[in-house]
Amino acid sequence: MALKGGGFERKSKASGDIPSSSLADIAFLLLIFFMVTTVFRAEAARPIEWPTAAATEQIDEKRDSILYLWLERNGDIWINDRAVPMADVAAVVGPRWLESGQRLIISLRADALVPYRYVDLVQEQLKRSGAVYVVFATELERRMTAGRR
């Protein structure tokens, strides 16, 4: 015996709509998840003038494995918001180098006009601490003749 209308319309109790009342909860969950997991580096930037270089390359490393070393124009050194005397740089960097499994990268953020004698002293200290991977932080210099690379 054939049912009228296929016999389906009455039996189907489930709504054809996707329940949208919990969508807000999902969205807020995502929002809060991203807000909580986003870590911003707390370190304050030192006022330096960046040197520029056309060969500047991006350093794709985890932020944990980069140590920023600021060198100001008058030769002052700042590591993690603390002024460090030149003679103590090796003592500060050394433990971090070992902690990182000898993979630590030093980003040397030196002022463009700092006399090179200070840069050389920093390099001597870094050699003594063992940290040999150094990046001279620069800004990309945009030249008109770009594209030769």
Binding site: I59, Y133, V135
Partner: peptide
């Protein structure tokens, strides 16, 4: 959510790589 995803910028590290001698 989309606003914060779009406006969040992570400062990129850039520079000239050198390896100091031991």
């Amino acid at each position: 959510l989309i606003f914060f995803l779009v406006t969040t910028v992570f400062p990129k590290d850039s520079g000239l790589r050198v390896v100091l001698p031991e």
